[in-house]
Nucleic acid binder design. Sequence first.
DNA 1: ACTCAGGTATCCT
DNA 2: AGGATACCTGAG
Length: 274
Amino acid sequence: MVTEISDDFDLKKIADSGQCFRWTETEDGYEIIAGSHWVRIREQDRGKEVNRHRLELTCSREEFETFWRQYFDLGLDYSSVRRRIDPEKDPYLYRASVCGRGIRILNQDPWETLITFIISQRKNIPAIRLSVDKLCRMAGTRLAEGRYSFPGPEQLCSLSGEQLAECGLGYRAKYVHRAAEDAADGRIDFDRLNGLPDDALKEELMKLYGVGIKVANCEMLFGFHRLDSFPEDVWILRLLEEEYPGGFPFAEYQPYNGIMQQYLFWYRRTVQKK
DNA sequence: ACTCAGGTATCCT
DNA sequence: AGGATACCTGAG
């Protein structure tokens, strides 16, 4: 099916934004696995009009409307969020947002996101991808040739410590195993967590073994779509130190500080590279 | 060989 | 409370 989108939308920037680890580049687009859904997506007539995107997906219109529309967060107008940035008052963020235009915060499954970001600690992005992929092949459900869903809590529980080690989890294996146990028997209840306000949700997430401030914020932003949460990693910390010595003006951008974080992170990593 | 990676738990003071 | 340190492992 084909759909038209008239808003910021850039597949490559989303893929490189560090929020998703199950996108693989194809000849002319990406292949995405999310939950039990699998799709190939490409943009037709790329680069003609700025905010007019014709996307071709290998799914039915029905599946697009019931799943992928929400996944890509098409209900939020990112260009209007971006226009809140005043180039005079915040030139650094403005530059970042111009360069990062097209990034969107995906709606990903909170379970999958939790495990992925537990794995992410002290790993670079290729290494995260590799571990997650091994985990899916080992314990996920086969969707198609060579494509596996992310394993559910019970599926992950069934793996031995040795098998987890084979996925290159290292010292994170015990965190992943505990999370799988807790989710499988309901001690982690994602529906309940989803009903909590931001501050209570963060508090609950940080109680989990292997989840500190950074992973909790990533889970808030990418797993629970709390768009105001602002993960502070080594890149962002260095950036804040250099560019915002008086502190970042969070009050200006509520409730979308997380989107601003994504522009900053992407700009710093891919444009400035320092 | 060596450092570093989208950090966190644990052990100090 | 806040600071130092160990930690698995793949990539550059």
